[in-house]
């Protein structure tokens, strides 16, 4: 029975990590727009290339933030959460056995 519970925990964590990474769509579209506009601006005014490029990189890095949040959550769900949850489960079962509930 406990194997099934651990399997559900691992599966839930993996599904959650996958769902969290849907947030990668937003920054992708946003950064694409930013780079497209920067290319247009450079095409119109090639002499301002360095300014436009540095501003674009800064903006891209800010726009990336939400994607990074999702990535952090996914990483935590894959590498940290399963161990924690399995620990909680095993400790709970141990406590229940000691108190005679099971």
């Amino acid at each position: 029975m406990i194997e099934l519970a651990i399997g559900i925990i691992l599966g839930g964590c993996a599904l959650g990590a996958g769902c969290a990474m849907i947030a990668g769509i937003g920054p992708g579209i946003g950064e694409g727009n930013a780079v497209a506009s920067a290319c247009e601006a450079i095409g119109r005014q090639p002499e301002s290339k360095s300014d436009v490029t540095s501003t674009m990189l800064f903006g891209c890095a800010i726009a990336e933030t939400t994607g990074i949040y999702a990535l952090v959550i996914a990483i935590l769900l894959i590498f940290v959460a399963p161990g924690r949850f399995v620990n909680i489960l095993t400790e709970g079962i141990k406590a229940a056995k000691e108190s005679g509930l099971i």
């Binding site: 890095a61 990336e64 933030t65 990074i68 949040y69 990535l71 952090v72 990483i75």
Partner: peptide
């Protein structure tokens, strides 16, 4: 919080 997560998330995700 957002400054922390932005910096740390980028570097950590890169290494992973």
């Amino acid at each position: 919080v957002s400054m922390t997560f932005r910096h740390y998330g980028n570097i950590l995700s890169g290494s992973i």
